[in-house]
Lab assay of single mutants.
Amino acid sequence: NITNLCPFDEVFNATRFASVYAWNRKRISNCVADYSVLYNLAPFFTFKCYGVSPTKLNDLCFTNVYADSFVIRGDEVRQIAPGQTGNIADYNYKLPDDFTGCVIAWNSNKLDSKVSGNYNYLYRLFRKSNLKPFERDISTEIYQAGNKPCNGVAGFNCYFPLRSYSFRPTYGVGHQPYRVVVLSFELLHAPATVCGPKKST
C-alpha cells in the first residue's frame, strides 16, 4: 500500500533546468501520483496529453512515469509533440509517434532571462542524422558540413554543433524561455507502482 506522493514538485520547481540537447530525465515510481497538483503548480502555457485524457490521469496506474525536463524558446514548444519536425524535434528531443503522456510548458522569462542575455541554455544546431525517439546526444564533436574532414577544428564548413540561446527579458514571447516537462507513461507487463490517489488504497 503506497502512500508517499510522487515528487513532481522537485521536477517542476527545480531551480535550474537542463539545456534541451542534454535534457534531464527523472524516473518516478512507487508513489501516489496526484496530477491535479500539477494544474495548480504554475499558470501553464501548455498542458497537452496524448493517448490519455488529462482529467482521467488520477484514475490510472502505470509501471513507471518518466519526467523529462529542459528549456526551449516559446515558438519551439509546438515541436514537443508526436510527429513534429524542426531543429528541436530533429536534433535535441524527439517524441515517438505513439507517445503516451503529457507535455507541460510554461513561460520562464522571469527566471531564465537576463538583461545582458542568459547564454547558459544550449541547443544542438547541427547533426548528421535525426534523433530516434527519446535519444539523447550530448556530443560536442565538430560538425563537418563540407567534404573536407574537420579534424576537430572549427572553421570553414566545420561547425561547433551547439548554439546558445541568449534569453533577454525584452524579447518577444516566441523568443522567451519556456520550461518544459514531458511526462511519459510506461505500461509494462509488470506491477503498477505509480497510481492516482483513488487507485492507491
Rank of each mutant, 00 (worst) to 15 (best):
F185V: 08
N58K: 13
Y178F: 15
D97F: 10
F160D: 11
C102R: 04
I80T: 02
E76K: 03
T140L: 10
L188E: 14
P96Y: 02
C49P: 02
F126T: 04
F47A: 11
N24C: 09
F185P: 06
G196F: 11
T170D: 02
G196L: 11
A190H: 13
I104E: 00
S200T: 15
K110H: 12
Y50R: 04
E10L: 08
F167D: 00
P43Y: 09
Q84Y: 07
P43Q: 11
C195I: 08
Y165F: 05
L111W: 11
K148F: 11
I142W: 05
G74M: 03
A42D: 07
N109W: 04
G152L: 07
E76I: 03
C31I: 05
R78Q: 12
T3H: 11
Y123G: 06
R124G: 00
P161F: 04
N4I: 09
Q176H: 04
G152P: 05
V37K: 14
N13M: 10
G196N: 12
R16S: 15
I142F: 06
A18N: 13
H189W: 09
N92M: 03
A145W: 02
C31Q: 06
A33N: 07
F134T: 06
Y121F: 09
G101H: 02
S19C: 06
F99M: 05
C102E: 01
C102L: 05
S129T: 15
C158V: 01
K132D: 10
C61I: 08
K128L: 08
F62A: 11
T55C: 07
R168G: 00
K128F: 08
C49A: 03
D98I: 08
G152Q: 10
V65T: 09
V71D: 00
A33Y: 15
F45H: 15
T85D: 08
I80V: 10
T15H: 11
W106E: 01
K26T: 14
A33E: 05
V173P: 07
A145D: 01
S129W: 08
N13W: 07
A81S: 08
R27F: 10
N130Q: 14
S36D: 10
S19A: 06
S184D: 07
Y121A: 09
H189N: 15
E10T: 10
L111C: 08
F99D: 00
F185S: 06
S108E: 01
D137R: 03
I104A: 09
K26G: 04
G117V: 03
N118K: 04
R124M: 00
P169L: 04
K148L: 14
N92A: 03
A14I: 06
A192T: 13
S53F: 09
A89N: 04
Y35E: 09
